[in-house]
Each structure stands twice: as C-alpha cells, then as structure tokens.
C-alpha cells in the first residue's frame, strides 16, 4: 500500500470513514511512521474518532479533535490544531471528514494549502450496502456534491462494503463487481479494500486492510 503525506477520507454518510481513518492511522503507525489524525467531522454527534483516542495514543498517533467532540454540546467548530497537520510536512496526516457534502465543507478551508503541497490522496470511502450509494449513478451524484464542497477532487476509491456485525466473506465478495464498475465509471483506481479482521482473514489473493471495530456494550 502506497502512502501520501496527507490522506483525506470522505464519502457518503455512514460509509465507515471514521473506522477507516482510525484503522489506517494504526496501520501507518505500525509501519513506524509519525502520524497525526484530525477529526473534522462537523456532522456526526456520536461515534467519532475520539472514541478510539486511547488506542490511537497508545500506538503513538497524535489525535486532533474538536474541543466539544463527544460532549453534551453540539458545537461544530474546527480544532485550530488542524493547521499543524497541514504545515508540519514531517508527519503523515489523516483527515476524517463528516459525511456527504455537508461534512466536506470543513475541508474547503484547507484545500488551497493541500493542493499547493500536492502530496495528498482524497479517498472516497464507499459501501454498496448503504442505500444511497447502491447504484453507481447515485454514487456519482454524491461524488460531485462532495468535490464541490471540499474544493478537492477524489483521487481513489476505498471499498468498505460491509453489513456491520453480519459482514461475511460472501457479503464482501458480492461488492467486488460493483466496486470495479464504480472505478470504471469514475476513472478512479481502487486504492484498497477494507473488511473486518475476521472477514479479512477468510479472503485470499486480494489485498484487504483488516479492520478492528469498536465494541459497544449493547
């Protein structure tokens, strides 16, 4: 897997951007890299990067979260430390955006600087099991809305097709032809596929990022 200095995970609401950003950060840290992850989700009130803060810090990853993330206040302000991730070119930066165009607006502020450095990847996190991105046509609509809001073009696709706790090798394999169709229609390469660790173990001959999922007590 080839890495760029900056990686942005964007896409449809609920496609698994936060989980991917967290797992990718752990993966990079596992390769011995200095990693900074920024939670720029201004849409989602619950289930965010901050929930994985302990694991990330233990792996040596620096976490930048909005001041009021996971609190009782719904105040979608961006953390000022985000500039560190843009200006400090000695670190690998990961940006976890909120869903759809509404979430992508948060990136617009940084788009010029990201373009100027020109060492970035903007990955479309996609799942064929999300009702609003089941068809390529629907996904194309969401792609152009996000690109317009973010002021940056997508460069890659990450196939994160999953059914949560019901994910199986079969449900993953069923997504492959759809992912290839999306790649053909958009002209974007599939950077990698992602699957929950146990599912990933069953998949042979295909590069899959094994994902650890957050456990909930309910």
């Amino acid at each position: 897997m080839e890495h760029k200095r900056l990686t942005v995970f964007a896409g449809h609401y609920g496609s698994g951007k936060t989980n991917l950003a967290v797992n990718y950060a752990l993966h990079l840290a596992g390769e011995g890299k200095r990693v900074v992850i920024a939670d720029l989700d201004i849409v989602n009130p619950y289930f965010r990067t901050k929930d994985s803060e302990r694991e990330l810090r233990e792996a040596g990853v620096t976490v930048i979260s909005p001041r009021f993330a996971s609190s009782n206040v719904d105040l979608p302000a961006l953390p000022p430390e985000t500039y560190r991730l843009i200006s400090d070119r000695s670190v690998y930066g990961i940006i976890d955006l909120g869903g759809d165009d509404r979430g992508a607006y948060a990136l617009g502020r940084f788009a010029d600087a990201i373009r100027e450095e020109n060492d970035f990847r903007m990955a479309l996190v996609w799942s064929c099991y999300r009702p609003m991105t089941e068809t390529t046509l629907d996904t194309l609509g969401i792609i152009s809305e996000i690109e317009a809001a973010a002021h940056l073009p997508f460069t890659d696709i990450v196939n994160n097709s999953n059914l949560g706790i019901e994910s199986t090798a079969r449900s993953f394999l069923a997504s492959l032809p759809l992912a290839e169709e999306l790649s053909r229609e958009t002209g974007l390469p599939i950077w990698f596929h992602a699957a929950e660790a146990e599912v990933a173990r069953e998949l042979r001959g295909i590069e899959v990022l094994p994902m650890m999922l957050q456990r909930k007590p309910f």
Binding site: Y13, S127, Y129, R130, N162, L163, G164
Partner: peptide
C-alpha cells in the same frame, strides 16, 4: 435484501 442503516435513516425510509 440486507442494507446497513442508521436508526434515524431507517425511520425515514420506513
């Protein structure tokens, strides 16, 4: 067919 949905979305679709 199975789909993955948020609780709030499931209300709206239903």
């Amino acid at each position: 067919k199975r789909v993955l949905m948020k609780g709030n979305e499931a209300i709206a679709e239903a």
